[in-house]
Structure formats: structure tokens, C-alpha cells
């Protein structure tokens, strides 16, 4: 009986343990090649002039993502020309969330007029490497030579329901500091969001 309990608990431990903790601040990021909504494959190395990236794990279906949609477009407008373009990646598997299929991503990006890459990770390998937990979840990356490192992980700002009432704009603060050549003050934040819907391994 005791053996059975131990076995059951071992199975549980595997079933409920987080699959991967993902990147931490300071970690070196491995480049990837993922399909964009325009059908072309995109790598970080393709952005010749970028000093870094605002990688945002985002999707079509999450109400929190929807609340941040204009703010994400705004981040790209503000920072792409300063060397920090937005690169959005959909972390949800269409097997779990039908509204997050590649075709729906294409439709969504067109409707919203995305001028940044919105990438699909069919194998979910890149997602597991980064380890986003919710949408939208931001990873600000900084590049020096061929080295790309994580500088910030977390929320866009401190007010989901009202952009104008946000008092702490975490991503803007981090990118502004990086552009100024300063260390990032707040490197990790948390926000309420929709859990990432990975396909079962």
C-alpha cells in the first residue's frame, strides 16, 4: 500500500510540476527561427540594426492581451526606431485554444495593423526555452555583438484596465535605461494574466 502511495505521489509530482522554469534575467538567449504572420521565417539575427528586443508572449484570445493590444503597438512605435523592436510570439497551442491558430493570428495581426513580427511556434520549443507563464508576458532582451541577454521579465505596466492611469511603466523604464546605457532598476515584475496554454508534452 505504501509503495502504491509513493508511486501515486511520484506521478502527481511529475504531473503538477512546472515543465520548465525558462530564462532568468541575465541568461543568454539562443536565437530561433519562427514563422511570421506574413509567412516568412524570422530570427533575431535578421534584425541587423537592433540593439535589443521587446519580446512579448501574446495571443489573440486573452482579455488581458486585448486590454494591452494598443499599448503593445505603442511600444513598437516608440522603440523600434530606437533599436528595440517588438517581437510578439504566440505561446498558446491551437490544440488547447482554437482561437490561437496560425490562421487566426494572421487575421488578428491584419485587423490590428501589426507592424511588428507576430510569430508562431508550432513545436513550442522556443516557448519552453523562454518559459512565459501568462499572456501578455514580456522579455526585454539586450544585444551586444552576437550575444543576446535577458534584461527584464514581466508586465508591461501596473494598470491593466486603464493605460492612462498606469504609474509604473515597467517595460518603458527598462528599455529607456538600456538605451541610456544604465542597468535596469526593476528587472522582474508580475501581473495577472491568462495562463499559457501549452500542448501536452
Amino acid at each position: 500500500m505504501k509503495k502504491l502511495i509513493v508511486l501515486c505521489l511520484a506521478v502527481l509530482l511529475v504531473a503538477f510540476s512546472p515543465a520548465n522554469k525558462g530564462y532568468e534575467v541575465g541568461d543568454k538567449v539562443t536565437d530561433f527561427k519562427l514563422k511570421n504572420v506574413d509567412g516568412k521565417m524570422v530570427s533575431l539575427a535578421d534584425y541587423k540594426d537592433a540593439k535589443g528586443f521587446i519580446v512579448i508572449f501574446d495571443c489573440n484570445t486573452c482579455p488581458v492581451s486585448k486590454a494591452y493590444n494598443d499599448r503593445i503597438i505603442g511600444l513598437n512605435e516608440k522603440y523600434a526606431s530606437k533599436g528595440y523592436p517588438v517581437v510578439a510570439i504566440n505561446p498558446n497551442s491551437p490544440e488547447v485554444s482554437a482561437g490561437d491558430s496560425f490562421d487566426e493570428m494572421v487575421r488578428y495581426a491584419r485587423k490590428k495593423g501589426y507592424e511588428f513580427a507576430y510569430l508562431y511556434d508550432e513545436s513550442q520549443e522556443v516557448i519552453r526555452r523562454f518559459g512565459p507563464t501568462n499572456t501578455p508576458h514580456v522579455f526585454v532582451l539586450t544585444r551586444s555583438g552576437s550575444d543576446v541577454k535577458v534584461a527584464y521579465i514581466g508586465a508591461i505596466d501596473d494598470n491593466t484596465r486603464d493605460a492612462s492611469a498606469a504609474t509604473k511603466r515597467y517595460v518603458e523604464a527598462a528599455v529607456d535605461e538600456l538605451i541610456a546605457g544604465k542597468p535596469v532598476t526593476t528587472t522582474r515584475t508580475k501581473a495577472v494574466g491568462c495562463g499559457v496554454k501549452l500542448k501536452s508534452a
Binding site: T133, D158, K190, V192, G193, V196
Partner: peptide, 21 residues
Amino acid sequence: AGDPNEWINKIDSSWSGALPA
């Protein structure tokens, strides 16, 4: 409770803020 970044860790530091939890 206002800014989630201020309270998520006070409920449980292992919680990312993702729902459901």
C-alpha cells in the same frame, strides 16, 4: 488590491499571476 506586482508574491511567491491558479 491595486497593482498585482505589489501583492502576487504576498499571496504566494511561486505564483506567476497566471489564471487559473
